[in-house]
Design a protein around this nucleic acid. Structure first.
Lengths: 364, 364
DNA sequence: GCTCTTGTTGAGACCGGTCTCAATCCGGTA
DNA sequence: TACCGGATTGAGACCGGTCTCAACAAGAGC
């Protein structure tokens, strides 16, 4: 048939075939095995032959096929990372931390967004597994529904969780000390005299929050815990009633607005579970003509870069986000390296940055 | 030897071997070829056999090896994306746009950061190529030094550039209309009466900027062009002297500070080439006790979410960032699909969002 | 009844590497 | 001179899929 010579259907659109070890071997007049040794830098090859092979490779523009290598070695030197949304600065930063550690160790990252959706996450994990990543870094959409994560473990792939834990799963985890962070942040507010403080998170949770409820994300659960503990410690009754979830559904700005306009509730301070929420609150306050911190005190998680530049600058609980990603990658790579030691959980400290968004409540 | 049965050295740490088509075939008592057909959903298989095979696969927990598939088909269903820094919100957003389009078309993304460094970029591209991505999305570290990009083209891989063009290369490109954007933004300032306006970018450029200089990034080059055109149009002499590059070296806050403190220069307005720079300027102004917009007018590229929440809110030129990434991915996938049409360059419009950071210059 | 077509199946090559194993070559040694 | 051990090299299996091709079966048409 009039096919292009040597092409048998595959190849990549353009007629050119990739140059392979065999081609190089032929050009250097050695066997494929020897050429492979010279190129892959393993086994023993004489100086002369190595040079000859490398020259031939150079000459032909040889470019190793990492996939073929993976096929025979079983190592892909690729990590999978699945985050909620790479546009979220938290995940972007954590991903960068992971990427830096991964690169330094010779790994690449396949990135997937779960949109905090179990189905999407499942699909992403499926693909990563199919592509034979050496291990996965996951910020799980759920700390409770463990099916997706178990898929990974069943497939025998190392797994490290970050940002959120899955207490019922035996797996390495890197989180921040959210409970303590929330407690401190809230303490600042109660110390300033606030008694009616709202906590806002975008996490989905059917119905209102009640004591004992299990939240989908362990990090939010921990924050809620720290928050309610702090309120309780300050002698405030029914702390759970101050917890507002599902903010994404309503939109955080509308929710904040509703809260602020509710005279009966009389909210005088807000704890924002992340910097995006803080932004929404800021907008709501501005729209309502409430001044921060005089009419409303605001504290938030994450030292987003803009928080220092608003008027007033906002008091935040900074998380070592970059390090969370980096440490997760370190743990994962260690496991991939064959470390069979006991499962570890790293709880990294957060630190408070006090700025100007907290003041005593205005008297009504 | 006392090796684990059936294992011959590879495998993944745990003893378990992956289950393959052959295993499934054996279990379903058909040939490997037939099992593959039933599982891969290609060729013709009888209803009965298909069911039998699928049941066996289910039973054994078969999970296809995408790498093996790639080996024979030549398609990896993976795109490479190399950005300056995923932590930069611009790149995070563009990446998300690309990821969405890619996923919808059945592709994944391998992510690399170039740190705007030619060497790092080169390495990243090398790895992506080795992993046989079907195509690459690159925000090139340089629009001028084309070696890295040529590597890709020489390897016969489809390539799409985004955010920055490489005019001397025949390659699909998606950029924003930076020149017009800069002209408009600057025009706002001159119209308000400013005559001494600084443009700040972090791009590296040896020595001071002079007319006719070729900048490493086409997008910055275009902005500079629009900026100087606007100044010229306003009858301002020596527009090039108002262009400040290399802001990363000195740090943008220190640079902005130096500029603002320089009485001879008498800068009354600043055009920030991205939102990170705007942030630095904001900090510098605050540190110096200059009030925006009375003592200093500020405009910036990118409608970063915080720009609406500062006091004053900042006037920005918004870019369709998400769409830049998405469109780039669309073009790339089309090429991968075999479209051999002429090279296209998409120039997406930017749009102005006027807020409160511009006012007439204070009289001195 | 016989050829033709269509549908289904199996055998085996192939993708591009790695790796095992045996063969060969070499100088050094008894 | 014959033998030994280490260094080099080549042949070929293997990884887990896809795909081509030939064999075979059954129903259609004459």
């Amino acid at each position: 048939m009039g096919e292009p010579p040597n092409g048998h259907g595959n190849g990549h659109g353009n007629g050119r075939r990739e140059v392979t070890v065999s081609d190089v071997a032929a050009a250097a007049k050695v066997s494929k095995a020897t050429a492979a040794r010279a190129l892959g830098d393993y086994g023993a090859v004489s100086e002369a032959v190595r040079d000859r092979v490398q020259a031939a490779a150079e000459q032909l523009g040889y470019r190793p096929n990492a996939l073929a290598r993976t096929m025979s070695t079983g190592r892909s030197n690729t990590l999978g990372i699945v985050v909620g949304d790479i546009e979220n600065p938290f995940f972007a930063q954590a991903t960068r931390g992971a990427a830096d550690v991964a690169n330094a160790a010779g790994f690449d990252l396949i990135l997937s967004n779960s949109d905090e959706e179990a189905d999407t996450e499942q699909k992403a994990i499926g693909v990563q597994l199919a592509k034979r990543v050496d291990g996965l870094l996951v910020a799980p959409a759920s700390s409770v529904d463990l099916d997706n994560l178990r898929t990974i473990i069943d497939a025998g792939r190392p797994l490290v969780l970050f940002d959120r834990a899955a207490p019922d799963l035996e797996v390495d985890t890197v989180v921040a000390d959210n409970r303590r962070g929330a407690e401190q942040l809230t303490g600042l507010l109660t110390a300033a005299g606030h008694r009616r403080i709202a906590f806002i998170s975008t996490i989905r949770h059917p119905g209102g929050f009640r004591r004992g409820d299990t939240l989908g994300s362990s990090s939010v659960a921990d924050r809620v815990q720290g928050f309610t503990d702090a309120l309780e410690g300050a002698g405030i009754a029914d702390p759970e009633s101050f917890v507002h979830l599902n903010a994404r559904q309503e939109g955080v700005e509308p929710l904040a607005r509703r809260l602020l306009e509710d005279r009966d509730r009389g909210i005088t301070a807000i704890v924002a579970s992340d910097s995006l929420i803080a932004l929404g609150v800021f907008r709501a306050a501005r729209a309502l003509g409430r001044s921060i911190p005089h009419d409303l005190s605001l504290v938030a998680f994450d030292d987003a870069d803009w928080t220092s530049v608003t008027t007033p600058a906002v008091t935040v609980m900074a998380q070592p986000i970059h390090e969370i990603g980096a440490e997760a990658a370190r743990l994962l790579i260690r496991r991939i390296g064959g470390d069979g030691g006991p499962v570890v959980t790293r709880t990294l400290p957060q630190h408070l940055i006090e700025r100007d968004s907290v003041a005593p409540p205005a008297r009504r």
